[in-house]
């Protein structure tokens, strides 16, 4: 009987929500939560579940990975599943980090699933198999089914097809293989060339990944004369959230007046709080300066290290927010910064 290990975060491992996202790694010789679903579908058995808090993995990556690899040292397994992580960014990164490490150390197939918007896809698709997944846990069954069906093919030594046909994100790995119809390369190249000359669409056999990189903006010459602005994706807003910025999948941003403030007041003072649904708000509500460091900027303003802190800070929520919306909000904020004659920006993300 083939054996599998499943990696889950604190939530899907049934430890709890954001308040226990710092949960250190543990391994259980049983099927916890979603691991049961894997077990039902797998041509084999899930013997162990590894559970780790997303923040723990984010902030103590090396320690978390070492601990989990140590756990697995004495476990026999043929395949490793991580997730599905849906659109949860930290969970996606965690699945990718541990998946990559497990694959490197134990050389077993590693399969995960993430929504296309999950940053884990771009980072780890070349390291492990990642299947496109839904936005949220409503797609659990669907996403796990896709992962396990592919896992079963591997375990049963079936022929594996290229990424497009199997359905996982392209890893950018080239395999030599022979086309069923045996059309030689020369003919295919000439066909492509003719299509190109005729202005028709053609599909290259050697796609070059496109990277959208931005030119590095020149450094600030004289900081002591510069106006600096703070921007955050950490969801810090006045306690009444006047712009009704969404707690997740935000499409709105706000700018808030801090002129004359030595620091950001907290929730208890009726001043600022976080509305971000992707992390435990306790610390940011108690002291919003840990996310938007107005107090530290004021100190540097007083010392003369910077010319001036811009009278407004800008805020939105970065969890579940699509890249398209984030880019639009970024452009809108940049426009406002231009009008305010700001010279440089510190952006804090959570």
């Amino acid at each position: 009987m083939k054996k599998a290990v499943v990696y889950l975060n604190q939530f899907f491992g049934q430890i709890g929500g954001e308040e226990v996202a710092d949960h250190p790694p543990e391994i259980r010789e049983e099927k916890v939560g979603a691991a049961m679903l894997y077990d039902q579908l797998l041509d084999g058995e899930v013997t162990h579940t590894v559970i780790c808090g997303d923040n723990y993995m984010g902030s103590n990556k090396d320690k978390a990975i070492d601990t989990i690899l140590d756990f697995l040292e004495d476990v026999e397994f043929d395949i490793f599943f991580a997730g599905p992580a849906f659109q949860a960014g930290r969970y996606g990164i965690a699945c990718g980090e541990i998946g990559k490490a497990v694959k490197e150390k134990f050389n077993v197939p590693v399969i995960s699933s993430m929504n296309i918007e999950n940053p884990g896809v771009e980072i780890f698709k070349k390291d492990i198999y990642i299947f496109p997944g839904g936005h949220s846990a409503a797609k659990m069954k669907n996403d796990v089914t896709k992962m396990v069906e592919f896992g079963n093919k591997i375990l049963n030594n079936e022929e594996l097809l290229p990424a497009e046909e199997e359905g996982y994100y392209k890893r950018g790995i080239r395999h030599q293989y022979f086309l069923k119809d045996k059309t030689p390369a020369a003919e295919r190249a000439v066909e492509m060339l003719l299509k190109k000359i005729n202005g028709e669409d053609f599909e290259s056999e050697l796609p070059i990944p496109e990277l959208d990189r931005v030119d590095i903006a020149p450094a600030v010459e004289d900081l002591s004369d510069a106006k600096i602005a703070l921007v955050t994706s950490g969801g810090i807003v006045p306690v009444d959230n006047p712009d009704k910025i969404q707690s997740a999948s935000a499409t709105r941003w706000g700018k808030y007046d801090i002129s004359g403030m030595e620091k950001l007041g907290n929730r208890e003072d009726g001043a600022f709080k976080t509305i971000h649904a992707g992390y435990d708000p306790a610390a940011a509500d108690a002291d919003p300066n840990v996310v938007v460091p107005v107090d530290a900027m004021r100190a540097y303003e007083k010392e003369g290290k910077i010319g001036k802190l811009h009278n407004y800070f800008y805020s939105t929520v970065g969890t579940g927010t699509t890249q398209g919306e984030a880019a639009r909000m970024g452009r809108e904020i940049a426009q406002d910064l231009k009008e305010a004659e700001v010279q440089a920006v510190i952006l804090t993300s959570t």
Binding site: V231, R331, L347
Partner: peptide, 28 residues
């Protein structure tokens, strides 16, 4: 957001915990 702000010509520094994400997205 960082990228669009930089594209508009502002030097911008991202303070982040998940460095791999900041790198992949293209913060400089």
């Amino acid at each position: 957001m960082v990228k669009e702000i930089e594209r508009a010509g502002f030097p911008v520094v991202q303070m982040a915990n998940l460095i791999p994400v900041a790198k992949t997205v293209g913060s400089n």
